[in-house]
Amino acid sequence: MRWWLRILVLLLLGFIAMPAIVACIVAFDARSILNFPPQAWSTRWFERALSYPDFRDGAWNSLLVMLSASVIATLLGAGAALTLEKLEFRGKRTLEALVMAPLVVPHFVVGLGFLTLFAQSGLPRGLPLLVLCHVVLVLPFVVRSVWISLKSLDGRLEDAALSLGAPPGRVLRQVTLPLLLPGLAGGWLFAAILSFTEFSASLFVSTQRTQTLPVAMYNYVREYADPSIAALSAIWIVTTMLLILAADRWLGLSRVLGTEVPGGR
């Protein structure tokens, strides 16, 4: 590689990693005001971040919402992708547009819409509302992920199973779905990550009791400027990194994300 290209790549990588690195360093600052670079070192902000009740509740809420929303969205998205790929029907284009719409509608609009709807109809604004909202937001990513796997699936495999005497339901269970597994797993992973980090729509539809971790963090920095937010960020980054490494080690991340080169190995 040419030397200037090498430097360009290093600069780019540094630029991408810089915010995370700064946050991690600041987390160890002993002072109670966010500042860079730190003058004295301490781990007391980690203790605070882990014991602060809003963060603990928020993390629990985020985890619940993430798990429910990603599983529901994966099931719905897989169904939608299969329907769009396999069946010909009137209004197919409309359904396609509808499923993909959240990609162009800003998250805060979705949040505002749900908030208005629930407030008007008097329905309780609990965790189910957050789950519903997240499902709508992450659905397009699941549909796309599964749809792409479906498109790269050789339709002759299903034909072969039919010709061997398997009725369509059995073909779906034994051939189509097992071969779609990487796409489903990738879609689920996208959905989970997006749901866990979602902020602007959650800000609208959550209450003090149901606030997610990103919303709790936002509320915290409005009142305090100490590095416990940075400590939380550091924990977040390390946890995510460990999870991704684990996924790569045991599941094969490239397979889950569908980036494996076909025919490779």
Binding site: D159, L162, S163, L164, G165, A166, P168
Partner: peptide, 11 residues
Amino acid sequence: PVWKRDIGMVF
């Protein structure tokens, strides 16, 4: 339907 025809097919 295909699955009741008792055919063998090589693609």
